[in-house]
């Protein structure tokens, strides 16, 4: 079907529709114009909307973040692309000290309705510094929203909502699954909520919580476990911050067990926050300790060894079995 789209095509479609709907939506970033972005997320948008709305910036990430704050404070809805999440660190000062707190610092007089998009995560044999997953660093910052889609449909709906959002949104695109799945997008303009987890599969034995590219490995694990008679409830967090703990807690209350899977380093990760919240609220209702399957606390390996770092189907299945056999 020609109208089915990959995740990166869904991003492109969402940007296209948002720009068509609202002239205040503008794009900026490195190589996003004639080149259409190194992953083609902005393909054809410059020719369609012109160079005033699709801006190739100089090669300066700090500048991109800073000028995005300036544009947003003037009421535009800028969507900036950071070419890889590995280069987002130059933006951190602007995100922490300005984007995240402009509304608070001015008590609503100025705000930052901006989106910062970045491809993230490993698994595509990219050069050094191109494969990190540091969503926890961003999720720690009050005032930001952190959103991670895991399918073309969710990429479209979440990005439309992110662009609508009056708050700054970090939109992290799992590049490992940019092109692995095609879906028919929902009706033009449909949005998905920015404060709600998605329950992708209902189950009764254990709750499996994940986001981004790991959703794929978790789905495979669910299939394997179903064949073994284990019923897994799979939750795609999608909106890392603010975190919808209600959905995760309700599911864990039902199953009594929870396994969290993420690609980022384990310690101080988003999984640690979710686990802490489960222990705070459900300690006496748990049938087993919460388990985490995550990247190790080492630097993301360069690509010859990256597949041994990223949680795979086997590690997830083992963790769930461990969780089920806990006394």
């Amino acid at each position: 079907m020609s109208d089915k789209k990959t995740l990166v095509e869904a991003v492109n479609t969402a940007l296209d529709h948002a720009m068509a709907d609202d002239k205040d939506v503008v794009l900026l970033g490195e190589d996003i114009g004639a080149n259409g972005g190194v992953f083609r997320a902005t393909q054809d948008l410059k020719s369609k909307y012109g160079l005033k709305r699709v801006m190739d910036t100089p090669l300066a990430e700090t500048l991109i973040a800073g000028m995005t704050v300036g544009m947003a404070a003037q009421g535009l809805k800028p969507v900036a692309e950071i070419q890889f999440m590995g280069f987002i660190f130059a933006c951190m000062e602007q995100l922490v000290t300005h984007a995240a707190r402009m509304r608070n610092r001015t008590r609503g007089r100025l705000s930052c309705p901006m989106v910062l998009r970045a491809p993230f995560g490993g698994g595509i044999h990219a050069p050094e510094h191109h494969s990190e997953s540091t969503e926890a660093l961003l999720a720690h910052i009050p005032g930001l929203r952190v959103v991670i889609p895991s399918s073309p449909v969710r990429a479209y709906g979440l990005l439309r909502s992110a662009i609508d959002s009056p708050d700054p949104v970090i939109f992290l695109e799992p590049k490992r699954i940019y092109r692995v799945q095609k879906q028919t997008l929902p009706e033009t303009g449909s949005r998905l909520p920015l404060d709600t987890c998605f329950t992708l599969r209902e189950g009764s034995d254990v709750t499996l919580v994940t986001w981004g590219a790991c959703v794929r490995e978790c789905q495979e694990a669910c299939n394997t476990l179903a064949e073994q008679g284990v019923s897994v409830e799979l939750i795609d967090v999608a909106t890392i911050k603010p975190l919808d703990m209600e959905t995760i807690l309700a599911s864990t209350r039902k199953t009594g067990r929870c396994v969290i899977v993420h690609e980022a380093a384990r310690s101080f990760g988003v999984g640690a926050e979710i686990a802490a919240r489960i222990f705070e609220d459900l300690f006496f209702e748990l049938k087993a300790p919460v388990k985490r399957v995550a990247g190790y606390d080492i630097t993301m390996p360069y690509y010859r060894m990256e597949e041994h770092y990223i949680p795979d189907h086997k590690r997830i299945v083992i963790a769930i079995h461990d969780c089920l056999t806990e006394p």
């Binding site: 801006m55 973040a65 800073g66 300036g70 544009m71 404070a73 003037q74 800028p78 602007q94 300005h98």
Partner: peptide, 16 residues
């Protein structure tokens, strides 16, 4: 100096 980035962003908005 972080304000310098905001100023060029504001000026970009004027230009757009």
């Amino acid at each position: 100096a972080t304000q310098a980035g905001h100023a060029v962003g504001v000026a970009s908005a004027f230009r757009i």
